[in-house]
Structure formats: structure tokens, C-alpha cells
Design a binder for these strands. Sequence first.
DNA 1: ACCTGCAGTGTGAACGCTAACACCGCGGGA
DNA 2: TCCCGCGGTGTTAGCGTTCACACTGCAGGT
Lengths: 340, 340
Amino acid sequence: MVTATSSPGRPPGMHDVARVAGVSHQTVSRVVNGHPSVSPATRTRVLQAIADLGYRRNTAARALVTRRSRTLGVVTLSTTLFGPTSTLLSVEAAARRAGWFVSVASTVAVGPADLDPAFEHFADQAVEGVVVIAPHLAAARAAEALAGRVPLVMVADLPRGSGIRSVAVDQRGGARLAVRHLLELGHRDIAHLAGPDDYFDAHARTLGWRQELRAHGVRPGALAHGDWSAASGYRACQDLLAEGVPDAVFVGNDLMALGAVRALGEAGLDVPGDVSVVGFDDMDGSDYFGPPLTTVRQDFTALGRRAIELLQQLIDGATPPRAASIPAELVRRSSTAARG
Amino acid sequence: MVTATSSPGRPPGMHDVARVAGVSHQTVSRVVNGHPSVSPATRTRVLQAIADLGYRRNTAARALVTRRSRTLGVVTLSTTLFGPTSTLLSVEAAARRAGWFVSVASTVAVGPADLDPAFEHFADQAVEGVVVIAPHLAAARAAEALAGRVPLVMVADLPRGSGIRSVAVDQRGGARLAVRHLLELGHRDIAHLAGPDDYFDAHARTLGWRQELRAHGVRPGALAHGDWSAASGYRACQDLLAEGVPDAVFVGNDLMALGAVRALGEAGLDVPGDVSVVGFDDMDGSDYFGPPLTTVRQDFTALGRRAIELLQQLIDGATPPRAASIPAELVRRSSTAARG
DNA sequence: ACCTGCAGTGTGAACGCTAACACCGCGGGA
DNA sequence: TCCCGCGGTGTTAGCGTTCACACTGCAGGT
């Protein structure tokens, strides 16, 4: 019994339920909102009427009077890259589980000119909070402007001292894990093939690479940059090789690692025989690369949950910690080996 | 000037704008909604007041009286696979460009028990239409039940005769393109490593493989199934090889192709020297697999646009075509070669 | 017997918007 | 001259909820 019995088109309202149950519309409201002071008998009667009529609370009317949309906005990079995609999925799931409606807006570029329309879109919708999945410098600036007006959490490994709340998997820690692994295998000349430096996560990984090496008294090897794509990894790795062959290369993400491995192969170098390679992300298929890639895995489920927790606190008017960090995990596979 | 001048907390309403502009709230409404019969002078004055006050039309109030939420629901598989991800992104972009708010709900499984909560979620939100990105048999059944109650479009290569509207890239055609390519290279024993058969797209690709072969009078080769993952492609390919070495294998998606290539390699077979491999999707990185993968590319942008067009027509009460199909495109790379 | 308190319920007024209709004044056809 | 029509505007009544408050009756203390 899903449709109303004899309604002339219009879906049933509280008033209809009230009439059927023989109570006032306010009592129906109380039942629907789980208010305590309703007698069990009345409650049952109302619930029955609701079921009979297929009544459904009108979100718009509710939002109008409560001034709460129960909607969260999520801006995300319009890319199929593993990180943003996983984050979007996990944030969405966490938000919905917490009872929010989730409105999504993707953006191809991350400048204020691209992000602001998305924010406008959310403002039109009166979202109660915004999650920004765009670990990018320009995005942070755009987000900072918005953060004053609406609760906002950014999913990015932001540098200390930023004005906005953020949640992220510990990129620096993850990078250190990767580099430590390489160090333990006996490698000393460890190059880094980084993502674009205006991506916070890329920057944090580079930082971690340098820190871990320094902590062990090892001089950082060569550094090159890509744009996260396999093609860029390929080219950057060729550049790297032009300066000499390192013991190992820590790559900013798995996709670039794929390109790097290819460049290495074309240079007659075996992975991991001649050069060890570590990636970052543990993307789909990285376990079947040639060779299966040693990489760093991020717990996206926890990430999404944490982001929503933080945002919820912000919305509730609490003062949550400035930033939340989630540990990363090293996944050892066959692209790394002890120094021959 | 974004905030109201001297409001006591509450954001400005039409009434406030009306007062400032010296008109009635209804005239403000007319301006905001682009109603023709407003004098240019008045319009300008109202627009100015709107800008000064930072007025923003209240979506909830508007939705309440118009009975339209201006929101579309999108259900998608909770996976980072290239296809669903690309589709989600393109559908979202198309919907937003068309002026819709987009509410997303992801689902791990596709049975009615998993989809129905998502549909409930959307019903609570009074979405005006739903897009289902889950080209799965069970999902279609769940969607069919909903389609009677709310405009619904499914993104899947549905078999003829299904009750629901659908949009898809022509999977069968794409598969035929791939197989024809293999045929043209002189291969005759062409195996197929398919996705799960309860995925419409997988099924359609298998169909296309068989059709194209038959059309050329060639007996279909061995058939094995995977679950879209690289690991499953690896295993399924091993099974295939146990029955003999084919000239070529057409794989249901790039990820499985990655696994297949590995299995082939481990069996001492060279790709494409001994066996040609074609994938499907053109996922990120497939151009840097070892070897770069010949594959079938889908135009996801067109797909999303078409899906929203169809849904819009459905919402407008029109009777759009049952199904829309978008051609696929073959991308030739190095995993295929002429028969030695 | 009284009042007090509270569980259980109802009444009326918003919330901010759009739709329907009424109104006003002016140009043009009868 | 009259009146019609229509561009431009205002007035009023909801849309379906929640909130604030008022009310009823019954239990318990005095």
C-alpha cells in the first residue's frame, strides 16, 4: 500500500493523516519527529494512518520552517583518478549514513573562477555544510573565502596554519613509510617523481620523502614533477634518468609509477632488479602492473567518515580540531627489492 | 557586498528586497523569475536592490509552493571502476548544466534490498527524476518498480523490450569494432574474457563478439568470465590458456585485460607477438600498460548529456525514445598485431 | 478540598514564496 | 464619448510544516 487511497492527485499531508487517525496535525508531527509526549495508543494509530496513506513528510515545508535543508554539498575534481573518486564515494556514503542529503558538483579546474559557481550552486540550495575534495592551492583559497559563511571541511593534507578545517590521510607519513621501506632495502640514491606541487598531497609526499631521507642522514636524490598521469610519469622518469640511474624511485601516485616503470624498461633497466619503484594510492590494477606495484594505501572509508564527523561538529557549532589525520599503510609487492 | 545591511540575523527575503526597491514582493518575484510584464525601470531597481541586499531566493519556499524540487537523484555503483565513475561525473555535469540540483547515492550491491533504500532516500527528497548507473540485471528490476512512480533513466545497454528508458554507449557495436580489428589483423581463434554476465554491458559485449565473428563466418573462440578486476582477468585468462592458446583475446574491460596480459606473460606468451589483446574502456593508464592497450573508448560526455536529455523529456511529460545509443570508438595501440 | 505539575493534546501563527485575481491608467476602435 | 484590452502593478490566499502556547485531566502533595 504505497499510494493514497482516494486522493485527487495531491500526495497526502499531515492533515490527511491527522483526519484518518482522528488526531490533530500537530500530534502527527510529534509522532513523525519522535517527540516523547505521545501516548502509545495514539502513536500506533498515527503510524497506521501514515502507512495506510503512504504519507511522506514534505521536505520543502519542513526546510522552510526549520531553516535547515539537511543537505551537504560536495565539490570534487572532475577526474577519474583513484584518490578523488574514492574520496567522493566515501564522503557520500558517510554523509548519507549520517542522515544528510548529498549534493554533488564536480569541477574541471580548481581556480576560484571554477569553484565559485559550484559554491553558488550550493548556496542556492542552502546547503548546511560543504566538503571540498580538491587538494589544491587555488581551491583552498576559494574555500577559505567560503568557510566564513558556511561550515566547510576540505579533504586535503593542508599545511599547518591554514584557516580551514581539513581531513586527510597522512600523506607525509605515507611517503615516509615508502621511503623507509626503500631505505631498509638498502637503497640510498632515492629519487622522487612528484605530482604537481600546487597539490597539497603531492607537496606533502615530497616533504615526507625528504624528511625520511634526512632523518636517516641520506641526501635526497633527484626530483621531478608530473601531472598525475601515466604519460607525465613516463616523461618525468626519462628526465630523471638523463641525470643518472637512481637506486630507487618513489613516485607520487600509481599512475605515474606505471609510466615510470615503462620509461625504466625502455632504458633497459629492470624493475625491481635495477631500480625499485614505489607508488602511492593502491589503485585498481596496481597489483597487476608489471611488476605488481609496491605502494601506499589510504583508508578512504575512515577519511570520509572523519570528514563528515568534523563537518557535523562545525555545523553543530562546536569547535572541532583544526585538522584530522589518518595513518597510511604500506603495501609491499614486487616492484621493490633489496639492493643487488 | 554579500551580506544584508542591517538584518538581525535572518537572510533577506523578497519582502526586504521589495521594500528597498519600493515595489511589492510580487514584482520582485516577477523579476526573479524573468516574467515579461515588468517595466525596464522597475526591473533595474529591483535587480539593484537584490544585489545590494545579497538576496537569494529561498529554495524551500519555492519548492513548497511550486511542488517542484528541481533535484535529480543519481544512484551509482560504489566502485572506482572507470566506467561508472566516468558516467557519474558526466551525468552530474550535464544535470547541473541543465539547471538541476544533483543528489547522489552510491550503492555497494545492486539488489533491490540495496537499491530501495537509495530510492527511499530520493523520495524523501522529492527528486523529480532518477538516473540509475548500475548496468545490472537486479538493478534493472528494482528500477523497473520505481519507474512507474518517478521519471527514471537507466544508463545501461539494456536488451530490447525492457520497460525502462535507457541510454548507453553501444556496447555491442564497440565489441564488434574490437573483434573486427582483430579479424582484420588476420586472427581467427578469438577468445573472449567477459565481465559478469548479469551486467548488461558485459552481456552486450559478449553478444557483439559473437555476432561479429559469426558475421565473418568465424567460429567463436573460448569464453571465460571475470568480475571486472585485474585479478579475475588473470585467473580467467589462465583458465582460457588451459584449453589452448588463442590467436587473440578480446577482454571485457581494461582492468581484466591487465590481468590477462600478465597471465599471458607468465605462460611465456608475448603480447602482441603471440597473442593480441583488446580491452574495453580506455581507462587512465591503459596507454602505458605493458604493452599499451588497444581498447574501445566510450564518449561519456555525450552519454551523460543524452541521459539528462531523456530524463528531462520524461519529466516534461513527453514520450522520448525508449533507448538512446551512442557509438563507441576503437583505440589502436600496441597490444594487437597482425598474425605472425 | 485545594492547588500544582505534568503528560498528552489541540490551536493559531508563522516560514518565504508563487498563483490567481484585482486593480489602475492609457491607447485605440466603435 | 464610451468601453474594451492590456501592460504594469499590488493584494490575498495558500503550499505543508514546526513552534509557541493554551488547554485538559489526572496524580500527588498540602
